[in-house]
Each structure stands twice: as C-alpha cells, then as structure tokens.
Amino acid sequence: MTTSFPMNAGDGPYSYFKNSHLQREVLDGANRMVRDAIIQKLDIKIMLSSSNTIRIADFGCSVGPNTFIAMQHVVQALKDKLLQVTNSTNNIPEFQIFFNDHVINDFNTLFQSLPIDRSYYAFGVPGTFHGRLFPSRSIHFAHSSCAIHWLSKIPKELLDEKSPAWNKGSIHYICTSNVEVVNSYVAQFEKDMEMLLNASAEEIAEGGMMVLVTPFASYTRLMIFFGSSLMDLVNELVDEADAKTLMINLRAVLEGLIINHFGSEMAEEACARTILKSEDISTWMKANYEKSCQLFVALKRK
C-alpha cells in the first residue's frame, strides 16, 4: 500500500485550511484560462443530451477553502456556457461535485466548512487519482489544481543502494551533478501522468473536459507539457510571495512527510529555522525562477 501524506488537518495556526494562500493565488490566476476553456471548447449540448445533471470532480481537494472557490468558478462558467448556447435561464441543470483526496485526508474539516449557499450537491470520494475513481463516462468536468506534482510513490531506484540514483549525500539535488536522481523523479512523474490521464479518459463522458492547474511540478517539464501560459502564473507568485508566509504554507503542506522521515522534534526545528532565513530564501526563489525561464526559452528554441 502506498503511503500518503495529506495536508495538515483541522483549522489550527499551521493547518492547510489557514495556510493555502499561494494555492489560492494559483486558482485566481488560472480562473480566466479555465473559464475560457469551458466557454470555447466544452460541448454542453452533448453532456445534457443524456442527463440533466452535470457531474464535476475536483482531484486533490484537500480540506478547503480553495476547492470551494475553484468549484464555484467552474459551476458559474458552466451556467454561462449553457446560457450562451440556449439563450435561456430555464431548465438549469443540477450539479454534483465530487471532492476527491487520499483516504486519510481530513474530510471532516472539508465538509464542515462547505458553503451554505452552494448551488451543488457535495460528495466525498476517497482514493488516489492515479487510478480509476468513477464509473465509465460518468464525469462531465474534471479539475485539479496544485495536486498533480505529488507522485504516487517514491521512484524505486532511489531505494536501491546499488542504483546510480541511490539518494545519498544531499538533502536536495538542484545543484548537484547526479542527474540520475532527477531523471528518476521525472520518469515517475511521467508514469503518474499517464495513469491519471488514462483513468480520466475512461471516466470523462463525451463532450466533457479535464483541466489541470499547477506551477509546482517539475517546472521545465510542465512548460513543455502544458505550454508557456504557466510562466505568467509562477512569475506572479514569485514576485508577490513573502518568504515567511511561504515557509508556513510549506509547513502546512509538508509537515506530515517531514515528521515521517525525521520525527516531530526535528520537523519543528526545521520549520523554525527556515522562517529565520526567510530573506535568503526570497533571494534564492527569484534567482532560480530566472534560471528556469532562461532554460525554458532555450528549450523552446530547439
């Protein structure tokens, strides 16, 4: 069984519920792109030919509130698309939204904070999005934001002491010459993307659509895979990000994983130290973003 590490639960000072502002900025920045995709490309007539219910899935919903904001954007865009096609506000379909995340995700916090004025029926779907979660052709619109960079498992090469990718000697591999480690992660990411897309191809109904939004996976790989529009999102995040806020955000995201590897005492110390180095981290973020842009431009020219 694959070990999973969900975002910090509850609504405390280091919870994901209270510390997911950067992910909210990603959603806000991508909102126009998601809306344009729905308005320009979604075949809503085919979707409604067999049912008066539109079923939407959000993969990697976590505990809120970002998933609710994203889903409200999607529902409103779908309503506007319907109005554009029918020129009528009669017979508005009903909406079902399936909130998906790992089985140990804090669904209690998620559903306790559901918007009271929501215009959809809410359901929870526990399980990994790297495999099938829904019946064939049952989902009309699938969405995921800030989630697909999570791998389904650690690349097996990193656990083999005889492998060139044996993960030893460095806490990170950004500046090392050992490309085998990076290549192992890239290969696993590509396998996971294939599993996700293959599963979704079975689940999404005719005329439906899938939208994936993330600036957090392998940056250059995503630029090649999804296009340069993500550069604008990441540029905005880097310009506006406060390193101290970012470190608290990362604690909400990664604390469970750090505790699993190093224990709670060391995790607490690591989080405290990163806050003290926030100015240095800000400088590093900007420098590495510029390098990523230069690399992407070079790759696009080839």
Rank of each mutant, 00 (worst) to 15 (best):
C61I: 06
K168G: 02
G29Y: 09
I174F: 07
R301G: 03
H149Y: 14
M193A: 07
E194Q: 11
S113P: 00
T109D: 04
L110W: 05
F5H: 12
L22R: 05
M209W: 11
H130R: 07
N260L: 00
S4V: 11
L299A: 10
D101H: 08
V125Q: 11
T67P: 01
G256P: 02
T2K: 11
A70I: 05
K18P: 00
E94L: 11
I259E: 13
F107W: 05
N235T: 09
S136R: 10
V34C: 13
R32M: 08
C175L: 12
E255I: 00
H73E: 09
R35W: 03
N183Q: 15
H140E: 09
H143L: 06
I39G: 01
D58Y: 02
E25P: 00
S282I: 01
H143K: 01
M7E: 08
L27Q: 08
N8V: 13
G60Y: 07
E269G: 00
I171R: 13
N235E: 13
N105E: 12
D160H: 06
N249Q: 13
T3K: 14
M247C: 15
A217Y: 01
G10H: 14
Q40A: 10
K156I: 09
K81G: 01
F296P: 00
H102G: 04
S229M: 04
I104T: 14
E269L: 10
N183H: 13
E161T: 12
R273W: 02
L276R: 12
P215I: 12
V75E: 10
L246Y: 15
L295P: 00
R273D: 09
I275V: 14
I275F: 07
Q23Y: 08
W150E: 01
Y120I: 01
D239L: 10
Y185H: 07
K286Q: 10
E194S: 12
H140Q: 13
E255Y: 08
E190I: 11
A270Q: 07
I258C: 04
F225S: 05
S119E: 13
W150A: 03
A298H: 06
S218E: 14
D11G: 01
D43Q: 08
I39Y: 04
K191L: 14
F141R: 03
P13Y: 10
S15H: 09
S278Y: 06
E25Y: 03
R24A: 12
S264G: 00
F17C: 08
Q294S: 12
H130Y: 15
S278M: 06
L230A: 02
R132N: 06
K244I: 09
H261Q: 14
N108K: 12
L257K: 05
V253S: 03
D11Y: 05
F99M: 04
P13E: 14
K45V: 04
A243M: 07
S4C: 10
K18T: 15
G12L: 08
S264M: 06
D117K: 04
F107Y: 12
F123T: 08
A37Q: 08
M47I: 15
T2Q: 12
I139F: 06
K156V: 09
I224E: 14
A243K: 05
V125K: 02
A9R: 07
E206M: 06
D58M: 04
F17W: 13
L237K: 01
P6W: 05
S136L: 02
E268H: 09
Q96N: 11
T274Y: 04
P155A: 03
D232H: 09
R55C: 09
I174L: 14
F111P: 00
I259F: 03
K191M: 11
S136G: 02
L110C: 02
C146V: 09
L133V: 02
Y185T: 06
D11C: 09
